[in-house]
Each structure stands twice: as C-alpha cells, then as structure tokens.
C-alpha cells in the first residue's frame, strides 16, 4: 500500500462516518453548526493522530492481554490534553462542544483505528492513517453541518445566507434533522458508489471496535451466545 492511498482512503473510500459508520454520536450532535463541527473535527483529528502514533510506537511493548485498557489510557490522556488546551485557548469552543469534548474518548473511530490499523502498521503509516481519517471525519461533519445550518438557521458559520435566512426550517438543527440528514447522506453515498464501497448493510458489530471487548462477531449472534451462556 503506498503512502498516498493510506492517507486518502479515509477521505472517500473508507470514510469513517459515511462508509464505516463509526462515530455516529458526535457526528449527529455537533453537526448543528459549522463552527462546532469544525472544532469537533479538529479536536478528534488531533486525538486520532496522537493516539495512532503512540499506539504504533508502543505496539511491540503492549502485551496482547491488556491492549484494550492500554489503548483506552492512551486515548483518554490525549483527550484530556486536548480538553485542557481547548479550555485554555478556545473557551468558546469548549462551551459549544460541552460534554461531547470529553466524550471523544469513546468515539469508535479512535479506538477502531488503534485496534484495526495502528497496532499492525508502522509509525508513519499510522500517522498518515490518522490524518486521513481525521480529515474524512472533519469534512463529513462540515458537509452535514453546512446542510443543517444553511437550511435550519439560514447561516453558514454565522454568516447569513440570502433567501434562506428569511425562511429557516429550524427542524434541521434539531435532533430529527440530524438523523434525517445523516440517513440521506448515507443513501446518496450508497447510490453513488452503487454498492462498490465496503457498505455496511446493517448496524452490527462487524466494524464496531467494541467487538474486541465482547469477542463476538456480530450483534446478530446475541441470541446464540445467550443460549450458550444459559447452557453452561
């Protein structure tokens, strides 16, 4: 795999939000406005790059048994660092992101890349992967926020848009608008790629990094494992 494709795959082919469908919570929550979307994207990208690099460096040192707790400690530390920096130098952004800033720690994209990529690849590749995935996440958030803010509030990053400013459809910036815009964007991606992209048909554990904890291939197997437990 050449360096360029490692970098660019996160932007389109393996877009974390629209194709891999990871990090849904912050995507829906912080795409209400362009400013908060950019802030969230930048904060997540910073954590993603740092944690990818750190985990790639440590991959030989970390014993397999405790790798998930180790990843969580590393990720949580970088999230806290970003939190402190944002609070100190961009307090307005801290207010806008609120609880979603510390919650970057449970963003599946970050743990997912640590488990799926950084723990298996070189430091340079992991850094590039982090940058690519971060840009993919940020651009998608930006796209969603543009749609939601333009139609919902008639502005773009606070700048009024002619015509739309007089007819805001405020449901776009509210929760239902988030779900609907997200659903529409995924449908468009499916249409454009006509199934070529590694599409996730349903929302199961296949690409969910938490699968590493539960050790089950798919949430659809829950019934099965339940029977096993009951039989014990």
């Amino acid at each position: 795999m050449n360096k360029l494709s490692v970098l660019t795959k996160g932007i389109i082919k393996e877009n974390p939000v629209l194709v891999l469908v990871l990090g849904t919570c912050p995507t829906l929550a912080t795409s209400t406005g362009v400013t908060s979307a950019l802030g969230m994207g930048a904060a997540t990208t910073a954590v993603l790059i740092c944690s990818n690099i750190a985990i790639s460096i440590l991959k030989k040192v970390i014993p397999d048994k405790v790798r998930i707790p180790c990843y969580i400690v590393v990720i949580a530390s970088f999230v806290t660092l970003v939190q402190m920096i944002v609070k100190a130098y961009a307090p307005a952004l801290n207010t806008a992101l609120g609880i979603y800033l510390p919650l970057i720690v449970v963003n599946c994209i970050i743990l997912g890349r640590a488990e799926m990529f950084a723990s298996k690849n070189s430091v340079v590749d992991s850094a590039l992967d982090g940058i690519g995935m971060g840009i993919g996440f940020t651009l998608t958030l930006l796209l969603m926020a543009t749609i939601r803010e333009a139609f919902g509030a008639g502005t773009w990053a606070g700048i009024p848009i002619p015509v739309l400013i007089d007819h805001p459809i405020s449901i776009f910036t509210m929760a239902p608008g988030g779900f609907a815009v997200y659903g529409l964007l995924i449908a468009i991606v499916i249409k454009l790629t006509s199934g070529k992209a590694p599409r996730r048909k349903s929302f199961d554990c296949e690409a969910c990094p938490s699968a590493a904890f539960c050790g089950r291939g798919s949430c659809d197997d829950l019934d099965l494992s339940k029977k096993e437990v009951a039989a014990e």
Binding site: L58, V61, I62, P63, K65, V66, V73, S77, L81, M84
Partner: peptide, 19 residues
C-alpha cells in the same frame, strides 16, 4: 501486562499533570 499498563498510566499521568 500489569507492569506495562502501570507504566503507561504513570507516564500519562505525569504528562497530564505537567500540562
């Protein structure tokens, strides 16, 4: 495993305290 996890925790805690 315990040693590595502890060391990572300590290093990160020091880093955070400094920041």
């Amino acid at each position: 495993p315990i040693a590595v996890l502890t060391i990572i925790c300590l290093v990160m805690a020091v880093l955070l305290a400094l920041t």
